[in-house]
Design a binder for these strands. Sequence first.
DNA 1: GTCTATATACGGATAGAC
DNA 2: GTCTATCCGTATATAGAC
Lengths: 208, 208
Amino acid sequence: MVPNEKKGDTSTEEKIKNAARLVFHQKGYAGTRTRDIAEQAGINLALLNYYFRSKQKLFDLIMLETMQDFIQSMKTVFNDKNTSLQSKVEAVASRYIDLLIKEPEIPLFIMSELRANPEGLLQKMKFQEVLMKSTFIRQYRIEVVKGEIAPQNLLHFIINVIGLTVFPFVASPILRSLGDLTKEQFNALMVERKAFIPKWVYAMMKVS
Amino acid sequence: MVPNEKKGDTSTEEKIKNAARLVFHQKGYAGTRTRDIAEQAGINLALLNYYFRSKQKLFDLIMLETMQDFIQSMKTVFNDKNTSLQSKVEAVASRYIDLLIKEPEIPLFIMSELRANPEGLLQKMKFQEVLMKSTFIRQYRIEVVKGEIAPQNLLHFIINVIGLTVFPFVASPILRSLGDLTKEQFNALMVERKAFIPKWVYAMMKVS
DNA sequence: GTCTATATACGGATAGAC
DNA sequence: GTCTATCCGTATATAGAC
């Protein structure tokens, strides 16, 4: 029987990767047992080592892919020369919120694992280069010069856009408990924010 | 030799607790080895179990204390009937930023550990009651009625205040890498935010 | 109360049959 | 490629001497 490796996610290797992504995202590296992954994938524990050599190697792979997905999805938006700064903020908020409704554990996963591994991955991803040299940032600087935006530190702007978008997902257990919200009610609240965030950010950035 | 139990942190029990707090906050429950705690405390591993029975019991204690400290420090602010809403936002931002500069790992610690343990602690802490029945929230509602604030969902207001304050500390590895900042430069940026956040929040909340 | 030595359990990884 | 059985290091926890 030839395994259907091209059909997408049915190959054993893909099943393991998908299971690993799920479990690692939920429990982090230290909290995950290879046995959990094997069970989730519906395969035998030995196969995990057969395909990926070790827990660490499998984790590194998932971590890299996760961060790439998270960044790559924004590169296009940031560097579109045909859209205004404000519409870029709209696009970022909208896309991230859609993504995070599907995979809400990603930010906490990335940030938790990054505290252990300080500089390793961050430089490899050239995070700084991708964002800081983008059209997005150039447009921001232009608006500051034109007086449309108060001349605060650029990082405040970035923190605010990302924070308003991502933070509620990081803190969702607390927020859901505070408002006594179901998962659906919480998600609806996040969808509301898609329209608010660009307006909010612009209002903030007029403040000196 | 009588151990100086009253002198503060010199008793063995306190030494272990302080070490445990430090290590758990940095590495989380799963990532921490009891040996790390013993070493950090400068005591023998067996003493840890002598005083606290198990890793789990010690962790539960630290977790509870950490969350209480985090909430308790705000109860006073939230319920002060003699200060305006805006000055409460100022006080919250200012106090949290001071606290987080001293102990920046706390938010990530709480949120990471909360994703595992869903409802257990949150209800025990009566988070909802403390905040939702506070003077802070009553004043917010009054300003909405008076038309000073656009009638958005109350949770957006809370998410925004807390998010703008806490998020940068959660994401600090990424942000520091983005801006190529030393710890000191990062902290200075956070101090700047003390003054900005109340202004920003007010500007946002006028937006419909 | 504090130590050394040790029991016990658990998790990652491999050997080897099929 | 996939399984069962097992090895072996590591981590929590306890026993027992001092």
